[in-house]
């Protein structure tokens, strides 16, 4: 599994640096920030999981909660 992980980290870094090599066509200004899509994706996913984890505290019930 470790090789997979470090391979992935490598790919991520390469892609991030790829931003330097071409001219980005952006509609919104934030799109042209360096590595916007990379870090936006990362932050979103972390936020997603953390929020969902908190949500579980509220919405999780036993499997036969509805009794059918």
């Amino acid at each position: 599994m470790d090789q997979f992980f470090y391979g992935l980290v490598g790919i991520c870094i390469v892609l991030l640096l790829g931003d330097l090599l071409y001219h980005k066509h952006a509609t919104f200004s934030f799109e042209s920030w360096f590595g916007f899509f990379a870090w936006y994706g990362f932050i979103c996913c972390v936020a997603l999981v953390l929020l969902a984890k908190q949500m579980r505290k509220v919405v999780k019930r036993d499997e036969d909660y509805y009794g059918d």
Binding site: I11, G18, D19, E31, G35, F37, G41, C45
Partner: peptide
């Protein structure tokens, strides 16, 4: 490139978590 960035870094987030 931007789509690959989005996807790869999301995958990274998953792995890290």
């Amino acid at each position: 490139v931007t789509q690959l960035q989005l996807l790869a870094w999301s995958a990274l987030a998953f792995s890290v978590l």
